[in-house]
Simulated scan of single mutants.
Amino acid sequence: MDLKHKILVVEDDSAVRNLVSTALDLHGYLHKQVGTGAMALLELSTNRYDLLLLDLGLPDMDGTEIIGKLRGWSNIPIIVLSARLEDKDKIEALDAGADDYLVKPFSVDELLARLRVWLRRVRQIGELEDGDPAEYANGDLRIDYLKQIATLRGEELHLTPYEYKLLCLFAKNTGKVLTHTYILKSIWGNESESAVSSLRVFMVSLRRKIESDPANPAYIKTHVGVGYRMMQAGDDSASDVRASKR
């Protein structure tokens, strides 16, 4: 187990908190527990964590409010642990920016499986590979991979986790056409119809945040029926397609 992974558990139910804590201890995860939303936000703003396990029914604020606040400045993966069974509650949490949702009571094995999935994605998307630069610069666009922050003209971009992952994927492949299949496998791990729809939605949202004119993008070009390409700033030759094996 990679001990550098550190998890914040936000749960006010002592029985659930003890169950999760025991499971994390047994599998070598570093973790800390807090019981209120205020303590969670303070902890996340002052310390680095790799993943958040979040109960929605906290004594001082609703978990969806915490998610909304976090997504203004953090891309940390969030797994919701909740007794709320209604689809509307799940949808509300996911729309707010949660990455996954587990209904109580849940099995420890399933929780650990979800943890492994999201921590693996953190490694694949967020961490630097040997020889990779710590920062990316392209015109007015900057990405600090270590801090996991993107800026445009010096102003921080408020990106969702998937938007940030997409931006990093394109940045690390600047000049290459990335096919829909490659993008879906890299970000979502599958090529389902729902994943295709999600990709289109996130691309529209991402472009609104990084492009001065989303209808005529200067950074990420569409190659109809094929995929997308991150352009080098100042390169307006959308037809100058450098083929990629990806």
Rank of each mutant, 00 (worst) to 15 (best):
L184Q: 11
I143V: 03
R116I: 08
K172S: 07
N75A: 13
A137N: 12
W188S: 06
L53S: 02
E43V: 05
S45V: 13
N138F: 04
A171S: 06
L52E: 05
S239P: 07
L81N: 03
S197V: 14
Y182H: 13
E129C: 11
L115I: 03
R17I: 09
V122Q: 07
Y182A: 11
L206E: 09
G57R: 07
L70Q: 04
L157Y: 10
S205E: 09
D95T: 12
G189A: 00
G28Q: 00
I78M: 02
E65P: 05
P161M: 07
A137Q: 15
V177L: 09
E211M: 06
P161K: 00
L19F: 04
P217Y: 04
I91F: 07
Y228H: 08
S237H: 14
D87M: 14
L102Q: 00
D235G: 04
F202N: 15
V103I: 14
L128H: 08
L166M: 08
L81Y: 00
E127S: 14
R207A: 07
M231R: 04
I210C: 06
M39T: 15
A40S: 04
M230A: 03
L70P: 03
L53E: 05
G63T: 00
V196R: 15
G139Y: 04
A215M: 12
A150G: 02
S82A: 03
A215T: 14
D95F: 06
Y228L: 06
Y182S: 12
L159G: 05
L42N: 11
E65S: 10
L146N: 15
F202K: 13
R229V: 13
K69I: 08
I125V: 10
S244C: 09
K32F: 14
D240T: 11
I66E: 02
L141M: 03
R153E: 13
A137L: 15
H27D: 14
R142C: 08
I125F: 07
E129W: 12
L58Q: 01
L128Q: 09
L119F: 09
V10R: 00
M230W: 08
D144W: 08
Y182Q: 10
G57N: 05
